Amino acid sequence: MITPNYVLDAKGFACPMPIVKTKKTMKNLEPGQVLEIQATDKGSTADLQAWAKSTGHEYLGTKTEGDVLHHFLRKDGANTAAETTVIPEISLENFKEKVENGENLIILDVRELGEYEAGHIQGAIHIPLGEVEQRSDELKKDACIYVICHSGRRSELAAQTMAKQGFKQLINVVPGMCDWTGETVK
């Protein structure tokens, strides 16, 4: 059983808020202390795992009780974020224009399966954020890939992971499917 030093209530919040609240709270902890994040967003597991990895904090695991996910993170002692690559962004409006003009785009949707099945852009490749590191070999490293999620945070984390694996042409779609007004398929 993990005993946290601090408990953060992020229940009822959707991406990106659990990460935003975690980041803010983590700043107040001492190196080595454990934060428990209580969340109801099913995507928060992959989000927090990727965020912890990208910032140098240690993801200790998740315990589920009913609809509540109890995530545990240990603050990194080095207190420095890992080196990150700046991922170029495209506005949702400009991206939608490319999609509607029929441009031949490679679109990677990194949302959770339920979000993807509820509606996604025709032809989008689905690899949830938590699987990107293991499954990125399904994509060509020299291709231009538009990465999209719900709000732009998970897609940024996915693109960071892929950049470390040698992908060179990654574009983060911001804000993401939360504001998408174009056609979707289910």
Rank of each mutant, 00 (worst) to 15 (best):
G152S: 06
N79T: 13
A81W: 07
V68T: 08
V185N: 12
K96S: 10
G176S: 04
N172W: 15
K96M: 07
R135F: 03
F95T: 00
P4H: 02
P31T: 06
W180S: 02
T25K: 14
K75R: 15
G61W: 09
N104R: 13
G56V: 12
Y59V: 00
V20R: 12
L92T: 01
D76W: 08
P88R: 09
A124G: 01
G12N: 11
A159H: 01
N101H: 13
G66D: 07
A82K: 15
M17K: 14
Y59C: 08
R135E: 11
A39P: 06
F95A: 08
E103S: 07
A163C: 09
P31Q: 05
H150G: 02
K21V: 03
K140W: 00
I148T: 12
H70D: 08
V99N: 10
G12Q: 09
M177W: 01
A159L: 00
I121N: 03
G56K: 13
G77V: 07
K42T: 13
A52P: 01
Q122N: 12
G43Y: 12
D41T: 09
P128T: 15
L35D: 00
P175R: 10
C178R: 08
I87L: 05
K98F: 05
L139K: 10
K53N: 13
T64A: 12
D9A: 08
V147M: 11
G152E: 08
V110Q: 10
T40C: 10
K140L: 11
G119K: 05
K186D: 02
A52K: 01
K186M: 07
V147K: 08
S54F: 03
P31E: 03
P88M: 14
I87M: 11
L48M: 15
L73Q: 14
K168I: 05
I106F: 13
L48N: 12
E183D: 11
D142G: 07
A124L: 06
N104K: 15
E100D: 15
M162N: 05
G66C: 03
N5S: 12
G32N: 08
E58N: 04
T25Y: 04
D179R: 12
K164A: 13
V147T: 08
